[in-house]
């Protein structure tokens, strides 16, 4: 198992060269970071190179790093989880969108067809634009929804609520009436807290 992982690292560094921004191995998982501009080319290599053969895109998701601890980097990332049946290996690829206000990443729907819906989901939840996507529509939120609900600055209770208005005899939207509250605060302890 260890030798296998080592060879994945070697193959990735050998194949991608300076296209590889960073490579990290932790918890038995390999994560690479690549540049948004080189994304489609690298992804095709990962899929087709004989030593890698990541034929299946298992997952694709957006991440908003704006409230992450002491984060100094780009705000939006897209994380791909790849699986190779031939070599029985997994790989995580992370790519950061260059512009925080208008995040754009190239689509991989032409490389793995299942990216189509995953990218629609990331577009819906984070507002990440995937250029070259055949049909970039919202997918999980309501028809006519405004905003990107999984961004960290979007409140948990949302902005609008829906009710039936008996006078107009239809469903209407109105600003939320519930107060936002925090039951358990988010706490980050210092290193080794309470370990002695």
């Amino acid at each position: 198992m260890m030798t296998e992982k080592k060879s994945l690292r070697e193959e990735l560094t050998g194949l991608l060269g300076d296209k590889l921004v960073s490579l990290r191995e932790a918890l038995g998982e390999t994560t690479i970071v690549i540049r948004a501009s080189e994304l489609p080319a690298v992804m095709v290599q990962l899929r087709d190179a004989e030593a890698l053969r990541f034929a299946q895109l298992i997952d694709l998701c957006g991440v908003d790093y704006s409230e992450y601890r002491d984060w100094e980097g780009r705000r939006f990332a897209v994380v791909y989880h790849l699986l190779s049946h031939v070599h029985n290996r997994r790989l995580r690829v992370r790519v950061f969108a260059e512009d925080d206000d208008f995040p754009v990443v190239d689509s991989v729907a032409g490389i793995w067809p299942d990216a189509n819906w995953f990218e629609r989901e990331a577009f819906d939840f984070f507002g990440i634009i995937f250029t070259g996507h055949p049909d970039l529509r919202r997918i999980l939120t309501d028809y006519g929804f405004v905003g990107n609900p999984f961004r960290k600055d979007f409140p948990l209770s949302g902005h609008v609520e829906m009710r039936y208005d008996p006078e107009q005899q239809r469903v209407v939207y109105q600003p939320v009436s519930i107060e936002p509250r925090v039951v358990t605060p988010r706490i980050i302890r210092e290193e080794n807290f309470g370990s002695n």
């Binding site: 991440v63 908003d64 409230e67 992450y68 601890r69 994380v79 706490i187 302890r189």
Partner: peptide
């Protein structure tokens, strides 16, 4: 099929991001 949980933690008492595959 394959049901996966992708979890990012920043050391807090709550996950920073949870993705359900």
């Amino acid at each position: 099929g394959e049901f996966g949980i992708y979890m990012i933690s920043d050391g807090a008492n709550k996950p920073y991001r949870l993705k359900i595959r």
